[in-house]
């Protein structure tokens, strides 16, 4: 993989996230009868995100790409399950899962960004990464609102799942050891820009 593909996959990922996120908040708010309960759902997310970070940290350098895939797949699962949740307990459980996915995504994103750029010349790459993911997120929210007006929030969850799946697939595809010449364990080094 290289930076270009990282940007692509993560733009798709932000598309998926941006599309559902604000509406997901509304969805959650409707579930909770109080703001405290709503707050709790988010605390659970951050707790799991923080808790797994220690466990993930030593594996990051070697398995960054893998984590990215797992994170997207996990999010895809969460999005598929959300429309079927019937209790607050389930929501908390999903918040736990999403917190974990969030940790994997955020941490590996940073590691891979560092891997695919060189010290001293990182500005352009990171700028472009930020640009595309932000733009994707902008399109996503606009599209999301429009889609809910026409369809339902459940459809948005499913569409978001589809996009998460696509982002996982994008990473996996550009990362499988397709080039026989590549030496084992050095895929990323060979493909650096």
């Amino acid at each position: 993989m290289n930076l270009k593909w990282l940007i692509r996959s993560q733009s798709i990922m932000t598309l998926a996230a941006g599309m559902i996120y604000p509406y997901y908040l509304l969805f959650l708010k409707n579930l909770g009868n109080s703001f405290s309960k709503y707050g709790l759902a988010f605390a659970v997310f951050t707790i799991s995100s923080a808790a797994v970070s220690h466990w993930l940290a030593p594996r990051l350098d070697k398995h960054g790409v893998c984590m990215m895939i797992v994170s997207s797949l996990g999010m895809m699962g969460a999005m598929l399950v959300f429309p079927w949740t019937s209790s607050y307990g389930w929501v908390l459980l999903l918040q736990l899962l999403m917190g974990t996915c969030n940790a994997m995504q955020r941490m590996s994103e940073r590691v891979l960004l560092a891997d695919y750029t060189e010290p001293g010349s990182r500005g352009a790459g990171i700028g472009s990464y930020h640009f595309w993911t932000s733009v994707a997120s902008g399109f996503a929210v606009i599209l999301g609102g429009f889609l809910i007006d026409w369809l339902t929030i459940n459809i948005l969850f499913y569409l978001s799942a589809l996009l998460y799946g696509t982002s996982a697939w994008t990473i996996w595809r550009t990362n499988r050891p397709a080039v026989p010449r590549a030496k084992e364990g050095s895929v990323s080094e060979h493909n650096v820009l």
């Binding site: 640009f131 733009v135 902008g138 399109f139 606009i142 609102g145």
Partner: peptide, 13 residues
Amino acid sequence: MLLLLASLAFVQY
């Protein structure tokens, strides 16, 4: 791209 997004936002507005 950014222009497109901004104009889309404007249209929505």
